[in-house]
């Protein structure tokens, strides 16, 4: 039985000529203990889909069943309760409250559940220990690194012991070390039996997923199962066909061109140091590519 079941779900924003179709009759079924990655270009409807699944937003059309219960037209109080008890959120921009300590932030969902202070702080502390943040309990978010804040946000998402974790680009603001830390943590949580749905632009992160859903223009264009530890096939193909636009990519492109230049001409060039550097970079990139495709 599907934990999450969306049938012909559409979401419209605006009205009249300014109407935008964010989701176009999406059908999606997610079972318990799946680790689902949602990929797609900006504006493809990934976040809208997550918001609807997380009961933060309501579909304009279609039905949404959560735990086999219709939840697409829930009253706000019921939606808040279900959200509190069933779903944990992890955001790209962390969204910890800056005026509360890490411990208080993590304990906040329990406060809304009506749990007493001693119990909720104790439970929040154990949750922070689980994500390796126990020695930062009394720090404020502004005193932590991005990776540490996201770990605290994960602890907050887990503190109510929710069945579903929804993460909207959880590594979007993190460096590679931070991203790895967060994804390893999510992977561990997945092993404990939680269902995780996350949005990412990084094909590398599909290694952690058991299923990858691709979206475009508000529609699911592809849905594939994948083995944990491997980059999803479509994502892998996509990864190397995407036009690179960063400065580093431009420089890599330059060095590629320089490799095509005959050795003699190259030696007479005015920037001899660049050649070595860029060649090395390219070689290293090639190794990485080999590793990835292994």
């Amino acid at each position: 039985m599907a934990l999450i079941k969306l049938e012909d779900v559409s979401k419209l924003y605006g009205f009249g000529d300014a109407t935008t179709l964010a989701l176009d009759e999406v059908n999606l079924s997610i079972n318990k203990n799946e680790f689902v990655a949602i990929m797609g270009p900006s504006g493809s409807g990934k976040s809208t889909l997550l918001n609807i699944m997380g009961l933060l937003d309501k579909p304009t059309h279609g039905t949404y069943k959560l735990q086999n219960r219709h939840v697409d037209r829930l009253r706000t109080a019921q939606a808040a309760k279900l959200r509190r008890d069933t779903i944990g959120f992890i955001f790209q921009s962390y969204n910890l409250l800056p005026r509360l300590t890490v411990l208080e932030n993590v304990a906040l969902p329990l406060a809304y559940k009506g749990i007493g202070q001693t119990r909720r702080l104790k439970y929040a502390s154990s949750m922070l220990e689980r994500v390796g943040m126990q020695n930062r309990e009394y720090f404020y978010p502004s005193q932590l690194s991005g990776g540490q804040i996201q770990c605290a946000a994960i602890a907050r998402a887990l503190v109510n012991n929710p069945q579903i974790i929804i993460a909207d680009e959880p590594t979007g603001n993190l460096d590679s070390a931070g991203s790895r830390l967060v994804m390893e943590l999510l992977s561990e949580i997945h092993k404990m039996g939680n269902t995780i749905i996350f949005v990412t632009h990084n094909p590398e992160l599909t290694r952690y997923a058991t299923r990858v859903v691709y979206m475009h223009d508000g529609m699911i264009i592809h849905d594939e199962k994948t083995a944990v530890g491997e980059v999803a096939k479509t994502a892998r193909d996509k990864m190397y066909s995407i036009a690179k636009k960063t400065v580093e990519d431009d420089l890599a492109g330059v060095s590629l061109l320089m490799n095509l230049v005959p050795e003699k001409d190259y030696e007479t060039s005015k920037v001899p140091t660049k050649k070595k550097t860029k060649t090395r970079r390219r070689t290293s990139g090639g190794k990485n590519r080999k590793k990835r495709t292994r």
Binding site: A77, F89, L97, P109, N160
Partner: peptide
């Protein structure tokens, strides 16, 4: 308003 959004996302009801 953003703080209100966060609080609601983590389970605060309208009444709270």
């Amino acid at each position: 308003m953003h703080e209100i959004g966060i609080r609601k996302a983590i389970g605060a009801s309208n009444r709270q």
